[in-house]
Structures are given as structure tokens and as C-alpha cells.
């Protein structure tokens, strides 16, 4: 058995989810081959070659992969698929976009967003916003699997010495092209890799007020997240959203501020190790999943919290 893991990177560095995805691939068992698709992306290929557990890196470098489309990545993966029992990627925006396209072209089911591996053909995946865990078995000849990165630990990003094989580009489908990306710039850790997250909801009132969360986050070296309500209200950009259909996170410490705790938000953070909630509504559902909570005005509590951290 050989497993093809499609790596996500920005040309130079790996995206954090890759290291968790390798843990899932190891649990499936088999030779792990990583595919790096990019343009001028040798640094990313070299980073992947050092990752613990990767036995070989396939590197497809071409101008059309500078900002690759789902159509072009799929076309490339399909040229490689016959050699693998499993095709695996992180269930991030990147993986969710092209993996079902690969599965459909192979006429196989995709197993989305797995949270555990039972055996090479049997996986656990959350359904209904994480309120149930389904164990599913795939009888398809190739298993196309996306991995919930919050459910798997990271492997070491050093110590490995995989060979790097340059492969040619796949077909250019010419169906769509990326014009530009507007990425939110932040010096803070990425949400899906942060040890601590400070998240704000509707109770923040406006975007300006997120400054008090940023001050707290800076003290804790935390990422800043948000509920859907805060994103829909335009307080913060869409990439802050934690929840069932946003980012799924499981940090050591999650601090929910002014978030009532809708089912959809809880789905994105209830696997955090320690949850703290600050809300003036004593009946807020977020308290049901919290380890510690304070019922008080967040505009009083958050600055005090920041200052007590010294």
C-alpha cells in the first residue's frame, strides 16, 4: 500500500496542517509519498522531504501552479492516482476544494474530515456539527480521504531525509484562473496551529472593539478568532471564523468572549483542551462546554485579564 499525501504550502513554507495529516497517514499504514505542487517551490519540497514519515517527495513545479486551481491540481493527481491505495489531504480550504473532484473522477466516495483511523478502510468522522461520530467503511479500490487536522497531533518537521523526484506538470485544463488573493496579514499564529485562541462574538459590538482581544492575544501569543455572527456583522474578515463550516480548532486554551455558543460555533471549538467563556448572559450555552466562565461585562473583564497577565 502506498499513500499519496497532497501538501499545502505557500511556496516556501508548509502550512501547519500537513504535519497532522502525516500522523493520520501513518495510522492508515503504508509508504507515504508527498506531492508538492507549486511554482518556484523548491523550498517547500525540501521542507516536506525533512518531515518525519515521508519516504518520497514528488515535486511538480510549473508556472501554472503559482496559484493552482482545483481543476489543475485534480488533473495532476489523476495522472498519479493509479499507484496509490489512498489519496489524502488536510480538510482545509485547500483540500476541501479539489479532493472531491479527484474522488468523482476516480468514481469513488470521499471520506471527508476524518477524526480517527480505525483501519486502512475504516474511519471515524464527525457528523451533525460534531454531535455524532460516524464510523464508516469504504469498499472503493482507492480511498480518498480528507483529515480534520485538529484531531491529529503533528509529526516532527525535521529528521526525515526523503528523496525529491521532479515530475512533469499535469494537463492545463484552462477552465479557470486565480486572479489574485487578498490574505489577511497578521503576525499572530495561524488559527489552526495556535496553542491559544482568543475569539470574539456578537457581544464585541463592532470591529474596533476587537482591539481589546488583540491586546489579550498578544500577551498569550494567541491567534484571534470569531463567531459567525461577528464575521457576518463585518467586525472581522471571514478567515477568522471558527465553527462547523469555518475553521475547526482544538487549542490548549480557547477563550470565548461575547460568544453565546450556537451549535455551529461549538462544533468548531469544543475539542479544545481548556475552554474559558466571558459573557454577561448567565444563561449563555457556551458555559455548558466551558471549564471556567465569568458572568460579567467583557469590556471590564478582558482589559483586567490582560493587565493581570503582566
Amino acid at each position: 500500500m502506498a499513500i499519496l499525501v497532497v501538501a499545502e504550502h505557500d511556496g516556501a513554507r508548509l502550512k501547519p496542517g500537513f504535519l497532522n495529516t502525516i500522523t493520520a497517514a501513518k495510522k492508515i499504514g503504508g509508504d507515504i509519498v508527498a506531492l508538492v505542487v507549486g511554482h518556484q517551490s523548491s523550498a517547500a519540497a525540501e521542507a516536506v522531504a525533512k518531515v518525519d514519515g515521508v519516504s518520497k517527495v514528488l515535486h511538480a513545479d510549473a508556472a501554472m501552479y503559482a496559484q493552482p486551481t482545483a481543476e489543475n491540481i485534480t488533473a495532476l493527481v489523476l495522472t498519479l492516482a493509479k499507484d496509490y491505495s489512498h489519496i489524502v489531504a488536510a480538510a482545509t480550504g485547500f483540500g476541501k476544494n479539489f479532493m472531491p473532484r479527484v474522488a468523482a473522477m476516480l468514481d469513488v466516495a470521499q471520506v471527508s474530515d476524518i477524526s480517527d483511523v480505525v483501519s486502512a478502510d475504516t474511519f471515524v468522522r464527525p457528523i451533525y456539527a460534531g454531535n455524532a461520530l460516524a464510523t464508516v467503511q469504504s469498499k472503493d479500490p482507492v480511498k480518498v480521504v480528507t483529515v480534520r487536522i485538529a484531531s491529529f497531533d503533528v509529526v516532527a518537521d525535521s529528521g526525515g531525509s526523503a528523496s525529491i523526484e521532479s515530475i512533469g506538470a499535469g494537463p492545463e485544463t484552462d477552465l479557470s484562473s486565480v486572479q489574485s488573493q487578498e490574505l489577511t496579514k497578521s503576525a499572530r499564529p495561524e488559527l489552526t496551529a495556535a496553542r491559544v485562541i482568543v475569539s470574539g462574538g456578537r457581544g464585541m459590538g463592532n470591529g474596533e472593539n476587537f482591539k481589546i482581544l488583540e491586546a489579550l492575544a498578544d500577551k498569550l501569543n494567541a491567534a484571534v478568532g470569531a463567531s459567525r455572527a461577528a464575521v457576518d456583522s463585518g467586525f472581522v474578515p471571514n478567515d477568522y471564523q471558527v465553527g462547523q463550516t469555518g475553521k475547526i480548532v482544538a487549542p490548549e486554551l480557547y477563550i470565548a468572549v461575547g460568544i453565546s455558543g450556537a451549535i455551529q460555533h461549538l462544533a468548531g471549538m469544543k475539542d479544545s483542551k481548556v475552554i474559558v467563556a466571558i459573557n454577561k448572559d448567565a444563561e449563555a450555552p457556551i458555559f455548558q462546554v466551558s471549564n471556567y466562565w465569568i458572568v460579567d461585562d467583557l469590556f471590564k473583564v478582558v482589559p483586567e485579564f490582560t493587565s493581570q497577565l503582566g
Binding site: 496559484q67 489574485s180 488573493q181
Partner: peptide, 11 residues
Amino acid sequence: EIDGGLEKLSS
């Protein structure tokens, strides 16, 4: 909507 923000696509 992508993980890091927004992407403009021509299709």
C-alpha cells in the same frame, strides 16, 4: 472564501 482570506477567480 479561502483559509487566509479571499481569492478572486476568473472562470
